[in-house]
Design a protein around this nucleic acid. Sequence first.
DNA 1: TTAAACCCTAAAGTGTACTAGAGGGTCAAA
DNA 2: TTTGACCCTCTAGTACACTTTAGGGTTTAA
Lengths: 131, 131
Amino acid sequence: MKIGQLAKTVDLDIQTLRYYESQGLINEPQRLENGYRDYPQNSVERLRFIKKAKLVGFTLKEIKDLLAIQVTKDEHTCQEVKNFTQIKLDEINQKINELSEIKAALQKIHTSCCGGEETAAHCSILQALEN
Amino acid sequence: MKIGQLAKTVDLDIQTLRYYESQGLINEPQRLENGYRDYPQNSVERLRFIKKAKLVGFTLKEIKDLLAIQVTKDEHTCQEVKNFTQIKLDEINQKINELSEIKAALQKIHTSCCGGEETAAHCSILQALEN
DNA sequence: TTAAACCCTAAAGTGTACTAGAGGGTCAAA
DNA sequence: TTTGACCCTCTAGTACACTTTAGGGTTTAA
Ligand SMILES: [Zn+2]
Ligand SMILES: [Zn+2]
Ligand SMILES: [Zn+2]
Ligand SMILES: [Zn+2]
């Protein structure tokens, strides 16, 4: 399968596929006589794995590690795999908490501003940021 | 006040201060005879404003705009100011929602994994990512 | 006097995940 | 035969907010 076909199948850019190859996320495919990449069928599954993992918040580097486990499942344990998702969950929770704090702080000063059309000389938002 | 003193006072890197200057977030300070930057006292407040605004989720560009309003308060309205924070609040809410969705998806596959020490050949996390 | 601590500029590097551009070769159909 | 669609490599650009490096000059205390 040539790169254009693969790109269409998995709905990714041709450049993205070459980029993933350069980052070691997919193996270098064999080449046709003219130098074109010739992907095996399982490239489709591998790329779908990558897309799913991205969707649930993994970075490309993390996905690379995850793929290393996936292709040698027998040499790894559920524990190892679950560690990945646990760490990711912790990170996501932390980000949500940080954003929630920011939101609360912003909400507070937002609510106290009158929003009127007079000059902002007395604006409570600016005052809050000044202190 | 020289840059090192200011950096210590507001707890920012010297380079960061010069970077903020290059981005127009703080005015170019006067120079001493030897060429060293000599900051006025109000730089401290200005930088604290910037730090607070960053904490509340504004980008440097947005802070620049906000500062433009702040120094010419009389020419702007509360409405304008409140618009800024409203937009920011919307963005933060959207980010939280996105993260919550990712969290839910990840949580789901995470919970279904046994986490045991046997081989990951049957791991439901990997299976979820494969399909 | 000399060493540490401080200051300067300008340019390049960092991380993330691509995206775009230059410049060129290959293939199928009209 | 020529047009258009496809493929190749290599390099650079994108956004953001710094951080680092190189190569200097200045001040202060021992
Ligand atoms: Zn008002
Ligand atoms: Zn107001
Ligand atoms: Zn298991
Ligand atoms: Zn498992």
